[in-house]
């Protein structure tokens, strides 16, 4: 019995812990952050969340075609008959 219920339980526990982590971070975020004049490093191109959009687009296409997962960072929808 414990074997049967082990996996779903672990998966949902994992999901809830990630969601509650996100909520905790969101509620505690007002104490985080910087003043506008402290954005010197964050403003650099290499600190953008997607610093090389074309690399990301090409990678998405490769992994969408070769693996069963897609998206997450951006939309993982259709677009080609490659999968």
């Amino acid at each position: 019995m414990s074997v049967l219920y082990y996996r779903p339980h672990r998966t949902s526990l994992f999901k809830y812990s990630v969601i509650s982590l996100a909520i905790t971070l969101a509620s505690g975020c007002s104490s985080l952050g910087v003043q506008p004049w402290e954005r010197d490093l964050l403003a650099k191109d290499e600190m953008a969340l997607t610093s090389s959009p074309l690399d990301a687009a090409l990678d998405d296409h490769i992994y969408f075609s070769k693996e069963a997962s897609s998206g997450g960072k951006s939309f993982g929808g259709g677009g080609c008959g490659c999968n």
């Binding site: 969601i19 996100a22 971070l25 969101a26 975020c29 985080l32 952050g33 910087v34 402290e38 954005r39 010197d40 490093l41 964050l42 600190m47 969340l49 998206g71 997450g72 960072k73 951006s74 939309f75 993982g76 929808g77 259709g78």
Partner: peptide, 30 residues
């Protein structure tokens, strides 16, 4: 035919002068 509908919720947070984080949840129905 095939249709794909996606919803994505995102949250981005600047932690400090050197660090930022992003969290996304995606739901996709094909």
């Amino acid at each position: 035919d095939k249709t794909t509908a996606d919803i994505m919720l995102g949250f981005t947070q600047v932690i400090n002068r050197r660090m930022l984080m992003q969290f996304n949840y995606s739901y996709s129905k094909v």
